[in-house]
Design a protein around this nucleic acid. Structure first.
Lengths: 324, 324
DNA sequence: CTGAAAGCGCTTACAG
DNA sequence: CTGAAAGCGCTTACAG
């Protein structure tokens, strides 16, 4: 038996006589032999799937990564993660570094990929990677106009669900803690909230939108300020995501305002912490597990003519932070 | 000029005529050429430094990773992260996968590496990796008996600082939410708390140790239970880490117990969230940034005869969750 | 289904 | 300091 057959038995989907295949595999495990990843990568690419994220520390990213890892093991791949702080230069450099290892796919999740001239390098690297046979999957809003497979969340439609629910349960006067305009998802969620509220009978004049930093502190500060000004007859504080909602909750608590007795509070994402809060947070649950699984599936599938476009919608998750 | 000189100019620290070197570099940037990582890895190893962690989502790991990444860019290396859920089998498989890419170093952070027979495979893989020229750095307690560079935290000494401070500020009756015994760091911190408390005048009979799951929920449940039983004259609830402390705080809040008016609460780690809590959490700050930087430095340094042993101590950080 | 051979893109003794 | 050459450990047309 030759080196070639052994190689085929171990790696290729090529046909090998069953008996030979068995022998090879048996010998391999006996000798604790594993194919050298670098050498293999040089010829046919590696089994790695690399995820680039702005920040690894966010609960949403963590959830997606966990799902990806579980799924990857199932298909003989493994995932590796890098963080790029959302800086285009760092993203481009990282893509290039990683490309050298010929991962099967690169999955990017960032709010920053765009056709903005300063980010043209990121695009170039991605395109080059794909030209060399790699797959690229984008996750997140704002990526749909790019020529890559994309997984998106229907932020607007999902937020609408929350808006409708709130209006239907008697919440009329709403203040939306809307984050910052630069984040595409923030704008989409805000629109969705408003649409839903209006669709279920709220009056546009009773809806107020206030920007804030997208962080616990941002939610806290904005809410503290609102409380100082007087909440008036506000029925609900609608946060752009759970992290902001956590800040909102703290600010209410600090000011002695009962939630949901005096005012309701809602989030978006359904991070693990959401159900541990007091009161447990009413929110829109995003299917992070499904998203992670889907990312791996797209990564394993050969490139199609048309890029895939998948959209996930969140589900309304009513808990204790809202009245009605 | 030959291929060899070009290779040397680009990669090796080998001597190349300055003029030739300049030409090569110039041409490389003009052509946007980068050395193929897989091919280079085959010969001399790659510039990757791989971190394996039980869980990427914990604030402590996130802080260390961020510091590692920043530092790595400074020395022409880059960091890649994998999570292994603390499962020895997954750890071993991941080490093997990653080894194939010949990273410069593997840094492991886990509470689970031990000489426990079931984890012998992990050890074998690590040893094999090192034999092939890679560096391995262990971060976390319980790794000091292994033949690798190790970065440890002086959990006991750091916790002692907190114990002393508490006793000195009049806290006599303490309940320690001690996590679970299996985690080495938990036992060490508990001992440190007790030592410090005693050293500064507390009475051993006034100290109570209760185990709990190491999570927000664990802290919450244990505290809720304690409150049900009656806190009596308890002066302080000493949590094994910030995450547990967050649960303690919620439970107090839910029960209408004022912190620090009726009882003080402390944590350990100083995760970013700690200073955002209400009240801001008194805790022991661990130098995650220094730890991350050190990990990279050890990774870049050639293997020495004796493994390096570095220990970091936390610093007492008094905020608003303690009286006195 | 299988072997001999070429080649993947680099690096590094070796001899100069 | 530099070139020619061998080699890193695999994979894959190609011919059978």
């Amino acid at each position: 038996m030759s080196l070639a057959t052994a190689s085929r038995a171990l790696g290729g989907g090529r046909s090998v006589a069953p008996e030979n295949a068995r022998k090879v595999l048996e010998a391999a495990t006996r000798l604790r032999y594993t194919v050298d990843a670098a050498a293999r990568a040089m010829n046919r690419g590696s089994d790695a799937i690399a995820l680039l994220a702005d920040d690894l520390a966010t609960p949403a990213v963590a959830a997606v990564v966990a799902a990806m890892e579980r799924r990857a093991r199932t298909v003989d791949a493994f995932v590796t993660v890098s963080s790029t702080r959302g800086l285009p230069e760092l993203q481009a450099a990282t893509i290039r570094n990683l490309s050298g290892f010929r991962p099967r796919a690169l999955v990017l999740t960032s709010t920053r990929i765009s056709q903005d001239p300063s980010e043209t390098r990121v695009l170039d690297e991605l395109l080059a990677f794909e030209r060399n046979g790699g797959r690229v999957i984008l996750y997140g809003s704002g990526s749909v106009h790019l020529p890559f497979d994309a997984i998106a969340v229907d932020d607007r439609g999902s937020a609408r669900l929350m808006g409708e629910h709130l209006a239907r349960t008697g919440h009329r006067r709403a203040i939306i803690l809307a984050g910052t305009r630069e984040r595409a998802y923030a704008a989409a969620r805000t629109s969705g909230y408003v649409e839903g509220l209006l669709a279920a009978g709220a009056d546009v004049q009773d809806i107020r939108i206030v920007n804030c930093e997208v962080s616990r502190q941002g939610g806290f500060d904005a809410t503290a300020q609102l409380i100082r000004e007087g909440l008036g007859g506000t029925d609900v504080l609608v946060a752009i995501n759970d992290t902001v909602a956590i800040g909102v909750l703290s600010a209410c608590r600090a000011a002695g305002i009962d939630v949901p007795g005096q005012v309701s509070v809602t989030g978006f994402d359904d991070v693990p912490l959401a159900r541990d809060l007091t009161p447990r947070l009413t929110t829109v649950a995003l299917p992070f597990t499904d998203i992670g699984i889907r990312a791996i599936e797209l990564a394993m599938r050969p490139r199609a003519d048309e890029p895939a476009r998948e959209t996930f919608r969140g589900t309304l998750t009513v808990r204790d932070s809202t009245s009605g």
